[in-house]
């Protein structure tokens, strides 16, 4: 039996919004330690990894490890039926091919029950090594979203350059070019408004902006975002999910032939 009750159901709605444009089908892995998911986009250029720890749920029970194959479009449709203030409970029997979703309004006067068919998925899982990065940049998530949106009007690629002076995002296209530079700003009143840069060596990498724009669907989950980069390896874009977990997006760079 698997059962997970989340009082702040809006978190699950936001997580789903952050995943659905990148991933069409994914295996949600349920273990006693929590829920996790790893999936690549259709072109295998990016990968998303979600962790929601068991202790972040008000109630969590998982007697046997389960891999729930979920069509993300269906999951989105059903989660849209939940109100933002609803408590969401997920339930599945060990051998069932269905996931039950229950939405309770805050005062308990309305309870909605949905059932979603699960799929048999044979997903390739990649081992993500724990590694140190040459640069880690923490910045307000809305600023990152804005930069990606703005520069995507200029060109298809963004060059991210991180030095001790700051981080620079630049794009070039037929109509011209654009550059946005963010400098370290430790004086901001709110922690989410701070820009912090930790660097051991400078990094410059080129990425397809369309993927970064898809990652920014997670903006509403967290006030800040962390970008981790080393030369010639995938960029990591991480959003915290309150104090219960994270969404990490990995994006393969474009590298000169």
């Amino acid at each position: 039996m698997f059962e997970a009750r989340l009082v702040q159901g809006s978190l699950l709605k936001k997580v789903q919004e952050a995943l659905k444009d990148i991933v069409q089908e994914a295996s949600w892995d349920c273990t006693s330690s929590g829920l996790s998911l790893q999936a690549m986009d259709g072109s295998h250029v990016s990968l998303v990894q979600l962790t929601l720890r068991a202790d972040g749920f008000e109630k969590y029970r998982c007697d046997r490890n389960l891999a729930m194959g979920i069509n993300m479009g269906s999951m989105s449709k059903i989660l849209k039926c939940a109100g933002n203030d609803d408590v969401i409970t997920l339930k599945a029997e060990d051998t069932s091919d269905r996931l039950e979703l229950m939405f309770e309004s805050p005062k308990g006067e309305k309870i909605s029950n949905y059932e979603m068919k699960l799929m048999d998925l044979d997903c390739e899982q990649l081992g993500i090594p724990d590694q140190e990065y040459s640069c880690s940049i923490k910045m307000p998530s809305h600023e990152f979203a804005r930069i990606c949106r703005d520069l995507s009007q200029i060109g298809e690629c963004v060059v991210i350059t991180c030095t001790k002076d700051g981080v620079q995002f630049s794009a070039k296209g037929d109509m011209g070019s654009g550059t946005v530079k963010m400098s370290q700003n430790l004086g901001a009143e709110k922690e989410d408004d701070q820009v912090t840069i930790e660097m051991t060596e400078p990094v410059q990498l080129t990425f397809a902006i369309k993927y970064l724009n898809m990652f920014t669907k997670a903006t509403s989950l967290s006030g800040s975002v962390c970008l981790s980069m080393s030369n010639d390896v995938p960029l990591v874009v991480e959003y915290k999910v309150e104090d219960m977990g994270h969404i990490k997006y990995f994006l393969a760079p474009k590298i000169e032939d």
Binding site: V45, L47, L126, A208, E256, D257
Partner: peptide, 14 residues
Amino acid sequence: MNKQKKISSFFETK
């Protein structure tokens, strides 16, 4: 010309 790498070329299959 920059070539788009695949993410799977950086991580090993489990």
